[in-house]
Design a protein around this nucleic acid. Structure first.
Ligand SMILES: [Mn+2]
Ligand SMILES: [Mn+2]
Ligand SMILES: [Zn+2]
Ligand SMILES: [Zn+2]
Lengths: 140, 140
DNA sequence: GTAAAATCTGCAACTTAGTTGCATATTTTA
DNA sequence: TAAAATATGCAACTAAGTTGCAGATTTTAC
């Protein structure tokens, strides 16, 4: 038995007209279980060393982003971080909290922040992303 | 005559106990004139080709950030972008708007967004940064 | 089920962003 | 103006991400 996360991942891939490959399914399931956005290196490690080439992981993520299943989270780190697009509207994704103590990033899906208004004349705001910084329970 | 931006830059450097070097003064003045945060490459270009080694620019920016005169702006690009710290409180910096058409980033110093509240139990929020995406007047 | 078409994967080579060590140059202090 | 403190440039390096291409998988059509 493969579990419902597996079926869900495959259904989403089929709906997006993407091939159901081992790598895509594995990454979708991993992101589904993860408490925060993950980088290529983190994904590679969690899937088990040497399972996939890093190029494959990058290209897999790219295809998932293009299909709208995954998006890049707005975290201030050198490497890009990816997470499932669910729980996010077109205009706003939940805030991301990064602990300045341990460096961990958490999704604050329970919080919402009003969209910016009164943009300067002529600017049209389409999306807003919020990043929070502070101390997590273990580091406070 | 060297102008008031120059004097201001030098005064700020002295107050921060940093040597007044040509590079620091030039970067502070440049950021003061800029309408948005700049990357190392942009800074190097605007200061005039080959004026400073990129290592020097990075180290200069690092010293300005440590002194609190400059900070890293929260923009979704591969390279870090830097801007003057003025107009920013400890808890919140103005939002940054990036046009999805031309890629330009603008500081929206006129807008302010309420700080997040109701963090999950045990988390202490210390800073908030907001990134906006959309179309600028020329691209709309 | 099988073959052809479509797409994905791994490898090697490359680019871009940023860092480190160290010898030399500049700025400050006295 | 000399000594002390700090900044700079160069070369060499690391980390993150990209590209081209040949071979492997997945899908579609029969
Ligand atoms: Mn998230
Ligand atoms: Mn700004
Ligand atoms: Zn922490
Ligand atoms: Zn634009």
């Amino acid at each position: 038995m493969k579990g419902s996360l597996d079926n869900e991942a495959r259904a989403n891939l089929r709906a997006a007209k993407l091939y159901c490959t081992r790598c895509r399914v594995a990454i979708l399931k991993l992101l589904g279980r993860s408490g925060g956005p993950l980088s290529q290196v983190q994904i590679a490690r969690k899937l088990g060393g040497g399972q996939y080439d890093k190029v494959t992981i990058y290209r897999t993520l790219e295809s998932l982003v293009n299909a709208g299943l995954v998006h890049k989270a707005f975290v201030q780190e050198r490497a890009w971080h990816f997470e499932l697009s669910d729980n996010c509207t077109e205009r706003q994704c939940h805030p991301h909290f990064t602990c300045t103590g341990c460096g961990e990033t958490h999704c604050f899906t329970g919080i919402s922040i009003p969209m910016a208004e009164h943009a300067p004349k002529g600017f049209r705001i389409q999306r807003q992303q919020v990043r929070l910084e502070g101390l997590c329970p273990s580091c406070a």
